[in-house]
């Protein structure tokens, strides 16, 4: 618990300002530090650590149309996890989404997927890209879906527009000095 809190604080101080990405339509994507801390707990640091993943849930702001990832689901018992593969079933993740949907009075969207790689700097695999292309062609409400891969030293964020165009890697933008 203390370790988690420490991660949260650390993330809060340093990443608040960094975790902003510009989207192809000039809107901004912000990943809340709590959500990022949750994904970072599953980093595959040790040899025996298996891949993990879940769904991304967030808001589209009324004020300016920017995107915020607020919540991420964590691996469920029904998911298949090995060192180099993660197969996620809808079970559990759908219930998790519904719970947030109810709490937030319908102001949340399915925003995509996250998973881990046993790699220092993660690179998407062919399977990953194939899956992402499949997902952006299912008509979800948000104009974009996001895909996050958590590596050991760094993580990468990709974005695909649901009107079916190609997947782009997003670059971090540094807001304040």
């Amino acid at each position: 618990m203390i370790a988690v809190l420490f991660v949260l604080m650390k993330v809060g101080i340093h990443i608040n300002r960094n975790l902003v990405y510009t989207l192809p339509n000039n809107k901004i994507l912000f990943i809340r530090p709590e959500a990022l801390a949750k994904m970072h707990q599953y980093k595959q640091v040790k040899w025996r650590d298996t891949e993990a993943g879940g769904i991304l849930i967030g808001r589209i702001l009324i004020e300016d149309g920017n995107y915020i990832i607020d919540e991420v689901s964590e691996p469920m018992l029904t998911d298949k996890r090995t060192r180099i593969r993660f197969i996620r079933k809808p079970d559990g993740h759908q219930e998790y989404f519904n719970k947030i949907w109810k709490r937030e009075k319908g102001t949340c969207f399915y925003f995509g997927e996250w998973h881990t790689h046993p790699q220092r700097i993660p690179v998407p695999s062919r399977t990953d890209r194939k899956e992402w292309n499949r997902l952006i062609n299912i008509s979800f409400e948000a104009d974009f879906l996001f895909f996050i891969i958590i590596g050991i030293d760094d993580f990468k964020v990709y974005c695909g527009s649901t009107s079916g165009r190609k997947i782009l890697e997003l670059n971090r933008r540094y807001e304040l000095g």
Partner: peptide, 25 residues
């Protein structure tokens, strides 16, 4: 509140299944 700042979705999303892998190319 968070919910007062976000757009309302038309319907709750139907969560798909998903698969990912790590391959050394």
């Amino acid at each position: 509140s968070k919910s007062s700042t976000g757009k309302k979705a038309m319907a709750a999303a139907v969560i798909p299944s998903s698969e990912s892998a790590f391959e050394l190319l």
